[in-house]
């Protein structure tokens, strides 16, 4: 029987705040990476790359607190699920941060070249992905299973946009081989965003696991 339940609760709250902070940073990184792409803003892209280290540091902090709590508190039931969820979510958020960095690197590779077309579907995809991240974090904060399910549904739309973008870029490449280089980079960007949506869906699954104790397949 842990006698220092208050201290344990404080630590669990620290884990929660760290995850929320991590979620905010990743959300911002994704928003900025798409902005940098649309506006070919190389400075902003560089800033995203530089700031990723902060996301990684929060993940390390979450790992450290969670490991200490398992070693010292022998958590069970929801306490245990809370810690396992924190590990899993931190890992998903960290991957999302990396994907924002990948998009920023694409921005840097495109450099000051003019875009082959005005971007429409990619920003739309970005908007949905961003909403998914925001709602997944909100679902986690409120332990709102319904919101987790609703958020995960948006993944279908992201998948739909992803294949639409690939088809469109494929036509571009066939019509004008000079666009192949940039088209491929934009294919990567849409792929990165499709992966982000999958990670957001994973977070939704983690929320359901936290609340109900079983992990559904929302993907």
């Amino acid at each position: 029987m842990p006698t220092n339940r208050q201290q344990f609760d404080d630590q669990l709250n620290t884990l929660r705040s760290a995850l929320v902070e991590m979620g905010r940073k990743v959300e911002e990184a994704i928003l900025n990476s798409v902005k940098a792409l649309k506006e070919t803003d190389l400075d902003l892209a560089q800033q995203i790359v530089d700031q990723d280290v902060e996301v990684n540091q929060i993940e390390e902090k979450i790992d450290e607190i969670g490991t200490t709590l398992i070693a010292t508190q022998q958590p069970v039931a929801k306490d245990l699920r809370r810690i396992l969820t924190a590990f899993k979510m931190a890992s998903d958020l960290e991957r999302m941060g990396d994907l924002a960095v990948d998009i920023s690197k694409v921005v840097m590779r495109i450099g000051n070249d003019a875009l082959i077309k005005p971007l429409v579907d990619i920003p739309r995809m970005a908007e949905i992905v961003q909403l998914m991240i925001a709602e997944s974090i909100q679902a986690y904060m409120e332990e709102n299973v319904d919101l987790a399910y609703k958020m995960a549904k948006m993944d279908d739309e992201v998948d739909h946009l992803y294949s639409q973008i690939l088809r469109e870029l494929f036509v571009f490449m066939v019509d004008n081989p000079k666009t192949v280089n940039q088209s491929l980079l934009l294919c990567f960007v849409s792929r990165y965003m499709e992966r982000m949506a999958d990670h957001a869906t994973n977070i939704g699954e983690s929320v359901v696991y936290l609340v109900r104790g079983h992990r559904p397949d929302l993907n």
Binding site: T3, V76, K78, D79
Partner: peptide
């Protein structure tokens, strides 16, 4: 049960 095993 949850409250007991988690030390509440």
């Amino acid at each position: 049960t949850e409250d007991y095993i988690t030390g509440r």
